[in-house]
Structure formats: C-alpha cells, structure tokens
Design a protein around this nucleic acid. Structure first.
Lengths: 365, 365
DNA sequence: CAGTATTTGTTCGTATGTATA
DNA sequence: ATATACATACGAACAAATACT
C-alpha cells in the first residue's frame, strides 16, 4: 500500500508487514538473503540493503553464520526509558512517589522521562505522543480528569498494541482496563468519616474534587459511612470543585464561595490537606475554631498536617511505597510480559494519623 | 590508532578524525565519493558503506546531487531530550523547580529525563553516563557534594567537548566554569543574620550543611554579617552536618547531638526550614521557646515555615522562577550556542518573609 | 534558461572472508 | 569437515538531484 518506489524499500515493507501480521514472530528466523534474492528476483546487495536498514532500526538482528532474526518488539538495549506522567508537581506527594519510582527503575538501569499534565487533556496527549515517538518501553501515569471519559484512550490503546507496559497510579480510566496502583480512598474515607460519626457528629459536610477519580472515590467512602450510620446524605452539605479552580492562584478565590455555601454542619471531610489548609485559613478569617466549632478530617497527611490548627486528622498515604509498588509492577511487566501483572487496581494499605481536630459532641448515636 | 581491520572502518575513522581535528568543519563539503575512491584506492561501494554509517550516526548529511556535508554536532531533530539531575526529591522545593523547568522545556518540544543523585557521586556518574549514552542535548544539574572536588568532572568535560549545554542550579563546581543559576545565598544569609543583629543578638549560632556549596555560602553570609557588626565568629557556635546525616531517618538522631553541643547563644541561623523544624522539635522536647528563649531564622520559606512555632522568619527562594530561568538559559544555549549565555553564576533575586521568630533583646548595638 | 558535468542513490553481478549449525 | 549464511569488498551501470557554465 505504501509508496515503495525502490526494491529495497518494498522488501523492507514486506518484512515489516510479515512481522506485524504474525507471519514472522519474535525470535523467528527470517528467510536467508539468498532465498529472498531468488524469491523476489533481486540482487543480494539489495536484500542486504533492506536488511541493514531494518537491523539499524532494531527490528531484526543479523547473526553472522546463522541468519537474520526478528527481534523482540523492544530490544533490551534500545530505549530503556520509562515515561512517567503526573498531573501536578505542586507538592511533596509527587516528590515522594517519584522518589520511589526512581529508586526502583534506575537501579535496574532504566531512565525516567518526566511529563506533567497539569490536568490538561492536551498536555497529556502531547506526552503520550512523545512516549510513542521516542519508543519508550513503559509508562507510569496518573490519569488526567480520570473521572471523565478520556479522548486520549486511542493513544493508550496504540501503546497496548505496541506492547508498551502501562501502570496507572492514583486512578485509571473506566474504559481502559489496566494495571494500576491506588490508595484505598474508599475505605480510608469511610474510616475517616466514621471517626466523625463516632464522635457524635451527624451533620457532616464534604468537600471533594469532581474531575479526578480520587474525588468520587473519597465521596463514595463518605457516603458509605453515612449510610452505615443510617444518616441520609444531604446534597447541600457536599461541595465540589474542579481542576480549573485547583491551581494555587484560583483556589482561594473560589473555594470560599464553595465552602461558605455549605451551612449547618458540625464537621467536614476535606479532599486533601491542601484544601484543609485553605479551609482552615478561611475559618480563621471568620473566627471559626478547629475543632472547637467545626471538626475536620482530611487526606494525605502531609508534614503541614501536624501544624494546621492543633494538628488535623488525616489519612496517611504511603507515597513512596506507592511509587515503588508501581515501578516494581512495571518492571515485572517489562521482564515477563504484560500478562505477568493483573490488569486490575491494586489497593495500597493505609493508616490514619489521629490528631486534635475532632471534637467529641457526646451522644454516641 | 583504533583497530581498523576493514577499509570502510578506516575511512570512517579518517573522516571522524578530520572533523575532530578541524580539517572538516561543520557545514563543510566532504570530498566526493569518487575522489575518495581514487585517493584510497577503494571501491565506491566501500566508500558509500562508510559514508552511510556516518550519515546514520548523524555526523554527516548526504545531499543527492550535491555532496556530503559535515553536520552540526547536534542535528536539531536528533534527541530533543534534556537531562535534569537533582540531589534530593524529598520536598516541594524540587517540585517547584521541576515545575518551572518542565513548563519552559516542554513548551519548546523538549523532553525531560530525570535523575536523582541522592548526593551520591556514583549515582551522579551513572546519570551523566546516561546523558552521554542517550545523546541528550542538554543538562540541568544540581551538583553533588558541590563544595568538594568532584571526580566526575571528566564526564562534564566530555559533555562540553560534545557541545552538550549545561546549566547548574543551586551550586557549581569550582574547577568547572559553567553557566549556573543560584539563589543569592550569601546576601540572603547576611540579611537574615542582620535581622538578628538588629534585634540585639550578639551570640548567634549557625547550623550549616558542610558538603553542599550552599552550606559554605550561607555560612559566608553569616560570617560577613557578624564581621560587619564587629562581632567575632566563634567556632563553637557553628555546627556542621553532612549528607550522610541528612536523609530523613538519620537526621534526628544526629542533629540533636550537633545542636546540643552548641551552647550560650540567644539566636540561631538554620541551614533550611527542614532543619529548622527539627531544631524546633528538639527545642519543644527541652522546653525551649521560639522566640521566647531562642530566636531563629532560616532559609527556603516552605509552606511549613508559617506554622513552625509562631511562624519562622525565612529567606524566600523563588524556586519555580529559578527553574524557569535555568531552562530558559539552557534553551538559549541550545539555540544560539553555548557562548550565548555567560558561563558564570546568575544570582536570583530573593525576599525575606519576616515572621514572629525573632525576639528583640534591646541594646541596639 | 538550457545544457552539461558532478554528485549521490539504486541496483545488479561477483568474489572472498568468517562465524555458525 | 562441510554446507550455510552473513560480512566485506570490487566493478559497473543507470537514475535523479544539484551545480555550473
């Protein structure tokens, strides 16, 4: 189908198509040069030209005295680079993850190519394209706007076709089953909300990120906990915010609007510690005390969490371990094939750092 | 000198040497194939074999009907990958820098290959080797143990020979003049120490990192401030710690030893906010109040700084800007040649966030 | 602008060397 | 040890792009 004005180009195409179609599989011996000469009625030099090109590109390996062989799709010595795409690099969470990933991969001689999506579908696409263009062997990725249908799925599917190993972290796309490593957001959220319930709170507000899978998952845990306690979920106590409003500049301008629209609650579940800090600052301005007036729980347990108010109760997320786990799974897939790792979410264990941000208001249900 | 058993290999060598020696300069037209046939008494096929190899490697460019030309050392379309090597990824400082670097480079179509040295000379070497092996076009690097002579200088020099652009951040090696972007540690430290002096402090302790260039620079500023105030520097008030003791696990075990050996001071200059936090925790255990008993100033102004004690006074380092500045300089070097950017340190502007960690003890000198 | 010489690109044929099965 | 298969090398011819007159 392709323009093959030259004989050596058409022979290259013929071999490539044969490999793609499965006629020649990885490790197979290709027909000898002399055989191809006869078959196509061309000279050996021409055959050699074609084979040399393919060999240069790493598609085949020529062994003197033996023959030419189809290389594994990804010859070991070729790229040895793994892409890692994260959504934000604002804080130390990412740094910890990266630390873990780096530790595992570089000890195995892999390089890391980094991309930041800033939760932009377009930037995600750009990086995925780069993964394909530069022939990376694997990808660790934090999905962009992972709770919504993703238009870049086609690129992920192209990667799968090309046998590029993929591990998602923190989230994944519903319509793309894949290995992933997640924190156990639902259970963690259920337990954190449970702490508030146990302290007698009944009107518990929630503040979640809407366009990232972690938001809905944390919301789910919150809902489950309320349901278990036979407390109806009140729509007006749940605030949602979105990526557009999430970067540091816009955050404060919009968050107070969301938070101040919540009313009549004694406790709040915050999407993460950064949001909790913003809420705390807002409360300070309005002279609301934590936990005196409002009890608060949150996620991530960043170092700051110790210092917000009297210390806030936060779900601990083993970030470095998550990075290590993701990288380890990727390595296994690279070495033993994609099937070696279950293409399902793996939930990381968690723990909760209880601090003085919950006031017991008696009446234990 | 090299084993050139084959004619095409020796011709390749001859051309490479010619380019290296300056006989053929970039853009020059090489002798025609037929000329080389006659000159070396070999067939045109053999000449073509050699030329094809060089062309594949990007060293020369063949133009049909015209001739073969020496390529620029780094043909634009080749790698488009920039290495970035940092020492630690523990905290958000690095994340901010990376954010800035990423923003600039990816908008120009460059990819980022990340390495973490963990302040290990060996890991640094490994990454530098990777930069060379994978033909990266540039490098942004935070030097490893930058206050000491570095055994990897040879690799940096090889990069320079290969026209790989290099920008140092935070530090540089004394014996390798190079473009670099630094925070103005000395001036910042002088000003911070000055704040303590203005508040009447005379016995001011200092706690510095010894094996990173930033440590000695901050110490220098501290010394200059004291000298300006005609206060002698007392050896016993200065504590030094080293990378071995700097990772999170070892830190606390050793820091208290260093800190507790300091005695008879009313104020302390801390290497950075993480150290300040450790010092603060130590003080808490010993019932020492900041600023009641000891005044404290520090560097970096991380978000935590607001929350340590009543908030600590800290020198603000525009991390993201530093990343942007470094990346911008690198881009300029990549586009216009290394000479386009002064091979000297560029100091970033800074500001100081004054908080309630300094007690005025009267007697304004 | 046309024509010609130069230069690289493609293809053929052949011969010899060397590693592998 | 022999046959097979790839690696190097030579010689020749024509095509196509470019440079020069």
């Amino acid at each position: 189908m392709k323009s093959a004005d030259f004989k050596y180009e058409s022979l290259k195409q013929w071999i490539i198509e044969g490999i793609r179609a499965g006629t020649f599989r990885h490790g197979d011996k290709l027909p000898s040069e002399n055989f191809l000469c006869r078959k196509f009625g061309i000279s050996r030099q021409t055959v050699r030209h074609a084979m040399a090109d393919l060999s240069e590109g790493g598609l085949i390996k020529k062994v003197r005295g033996s023959g030419s062989y189809v290389q594994k799709q990804r010859p070991m010595g070729s790229s040895k680079t793994v892409g890692i795409l994260v959504s934000h690099v604002d804080d130390y969470l990412f740094a910890q993850i990266l630390n873990g990933v780096e530790e595992v991969l570089t000890s195995d001689g892999f390089g890391i190519d980094l991309g930041i999506s800033n939760n932009s579908i377009e930037l995600e696409r750009k990086f995925l394209q780069r993964v394909l263009d530069t022939n990376m062997v694997g990808l660790i990725v934090e999905g962009t706007r992972s709770s919504l249908p993703n238009p870049n799925i086609e690129l992920y599917e192209e990667m799968r076709r090309r046998d590029i190993s993929i591990v998602f972290i923190h989230n994944y796309y519903e319509n793309f089953p894949c290995a992933s490593v997640l924190m156990d957001d639902i259970a963690m959220s259920r337990e954190l909300t449970g702490l508030l319930l146990k302290a007698g709170h009944k009107r518990i507000a929630g503040l979640f990120k809407g366009d990232d899978l972690q938001g809905p998952r944390r919301y789910t845990g919150y809902v489950e906990a309320l349901r278990d306690a036979d407390i109806p979920v009140r729509e007006e106590l749940v605030g949602w915010f979105y990526s557009n409003y999430y970067d540091n500049i816009m955050l404060e301008m919009n968050l107070d609007h969301v938070v101040m629209n919540l009313a009549g609650y004694t406790a709040i579940v915050c999407y993460n510690d950064w949001i909790a800090e913003e809420v705390y600052k807002l409360y300070q301005q309005n002279n609301i005390k934590i936990p005196g007036d409002i009890s608060l729980v949150s996620f991530d347990d960043i170092p700051l969490a110790r210092y917000i108010a009297n210390g806030i109760t936060s779900g601990q997320h083993p970030h470095k371990l998550l990075g290590i786990e993701a990288a380890t799974r990727l390595l296994k897939m690279l070495r033993e094939g994609i099937a070696a790792v279950p293409q399902q979410p793996r939930l990381m264990p968690y723990s909760i750092s209880v601090r003085d941000s919950i006031k017991d208001i008696g009446e234990t249900r």
